[in-house]
Design a protein around this nucleic acid. Sequence first.
DNA 1: CGAAATAACGTGTACGTTCACGATTTCTTA
DNA 2: TAAGAAATCGTGAACGTACACGTTATTTCG
Lengths: 369, 369
Amino acid sequence: MNASVKRSMKNKNVEPTGIKDIAAALNISIGTVDRALHDRPGVSPKTRAKVMKMAEKLNYRPNVAARSLKLNRRLRVGVYLPRQIASFFDSLREGIQATAASTHGLNLELDFQMYPRLGDGDLEMLESSVEHHYDGLIMTPGDPARVASLVHRLTSHGTAVICVASDAPRTDRLAAVCVDAAASGGIAAELLARVIREKGSVATITGNLGTLDHAEKLRGFAGTLATVAPHLSLLPAIESHERPKEAYQATLALLARRPRPLGIYISTANSMPVLRALEEQKMLGHIEIITTDLFPELVPLIESGNILATLYQRPFTQGKVAIETLVRYLTEKTTPEAVNRLAPHIILRSNLPLFLNRISANENEADDQ
Amino acid sequence: MNASVKRSMKNKNVEPTGIKDIAAALNISIGTVDRALHDRPGVSPKTRAKVMKMAEKLNYRPNVAARSLKLNRRLRVGVYLPRQIASFFDSLREGIQATAASTHGLNLELDFQMYPRLGDGDLEMLESSVEHHYDGLIMTPGDPARVASLVHRLTSHGTAVICVASDAPRTDRLAAVCVDAAASGGIAAELLARVIREKGSVATITGNLGTLDHAEKLRGFAGTLATVAPHLSLLPAIESHERPKEAYQATLALLARRPRPLGIYISTANSMPVLRALEEQKMLGHIEIITTDLFPELVPLIESGNILATLYQRPFTQGKVAIETLVRYLTEKTTPEAVNRLAPHIILRSNLPLFLNRISANENEADDQ
DNA sequence: CGAAATAACGTGTACGTTCACGATTTCTTA
DNA sequence: TAAGAAATCGTGAACGTACACGTTATTTCG
């Protein structure tokens, strides 16, 4: 275990060989080496082969600092996301912003654009994005079918499109980053099945079944419930269309049923109307509840145990992964996984404090994960 | 919502201001600006103040690519981690590696060093790290008390030390990245309390209480159990010292108790001996079990429902956050949060597939989280 | 008061790479 | 075979910063 042995270990304390070293070794110019290494035209096959071999032999590693300095690439990416639901999309934007701010060596310019809500003015706004000729675009597809042609035009104009929070499969989007919705539903079902022992029924209240996201959640919920909870039956899904009134009324109707459901899975972040109805009917604490995402009004209900768990869709991380994926694609040429499914966080009473800093007043650190 | 309004949004579409811009704005030379910005001698206090103010006003951000090119500074960071437990630390190393590979504009060189296991040769190996004069060092402290002086020497030699997986508080370490151990224990207790309805007792099997990590888990478990589960009593903690034989024997002894414990929380990743004992005694499925981390042998037990949940400590993410924190500190001067507590992932049967790609054969993508 | 010493500031080069441009060679074809 | 076209290659200027060195302004002291 003397010094020479230690030297031979993994530390590469040799002087890094540059492009000029391999040029000198072959008595050719650095320009030719550059062309050969990057598959640029204007170099004969033989010299290209020689260069590649010598580069391998000398263990050439490009100097990323010099590269990113020289080609001072300016990446322009558009971020087109709805304003509602703010607790989710604000955090998503923060994730993008924070990650972008800490990318050294390349300056990327973010163009944040907002529209009121999913399906409300998104198409028009995205339409205008085509002429901006962004290098990349981050968006949330509302109706996958309707955005297909738009994505196609963007892609053929050289804009890489990344879907976030929901996916638009069968389109030309480069990749998608979202929480695994089916797993979310499955988790909800499994938790309810483990906690509820009596025979009975459980209900689901969803936002808009038109979006792929909510349909997947329901699918996962139903599938897992059927396999792990033979004692629980599933009531027909209630669709709130993200309208508070509708959700409130539907909940009242649900609670009027006899026998009452033993558990409820609310798969949209707009859960407050449902919870309000539950509270007014004094049903909090008597029905097991699983919600979606995290916002201040939910906190006391989790702390008191009235909500069994909430499934956090990690908007900050989604934004972070989305912009990282996009940047990696734009700088290197690596095509990413078509769809990156994040695992939702299961927030219980005991790990709730770990997530509270992410929903407090903005502009604090908003640390990772 | 016209064009001017859109322009005024958060996008910083201005050309990034360099050192020469602030020189031009003040009609001085870039040399003076450089001296002023870096507290170098040879510049009058007044001009220094002017430069600083203008730098602030123009929102100057140094170009790290140009800097690290000029200084030809390779950031050298040592990664000193144990080989055991491989499922955890291999993934941790991968997280560091993958993240380091995607840092643009700065050349950082990783020096991976391994020692058999925590507390087995770590001090000696870390001792040798002092003379390497790393810019940064990532390590896992075994016994916090014993590494204090070492960390102090490293820090005073200009090496920034980051603790990962466990912390060494009250030392000169720059920061720590770990899963919130108390929360892990709390989650385990809460899940057991929700699932077990009968009156009875639960047991904990830990690795080495000497490490801060395991002690914290136990503290969180006991604390939460006391508040949410009045029907469950806690048996004295069993310490396995990370030795398979010891863990196996202790489990047999535990199962010989009457009445038998209704639930077991295994807070170390070395859970196989315990599970083997449980299986041999035909107790799998009759005792609620919560384990720690994820590795291939655990998968079928989770799929069959014999393990209620496993608390995944996200080694990949820990490595990623650790190296990100370190690099951010070394490039900018921002001192990070002293300790970054990640939320553990609760892996159930229904979300298990989301985590399987992270424990399969190496060298695949090993995507985020 | 003038020269030397010191402080304050300007100038130029280099870091390794990319790329436009010009120079040189090789290949066609009449 | 000569000249034009095409392929191949060399040259030099940038990218933003750090730093050695040279230059000018200010002070000190015999």
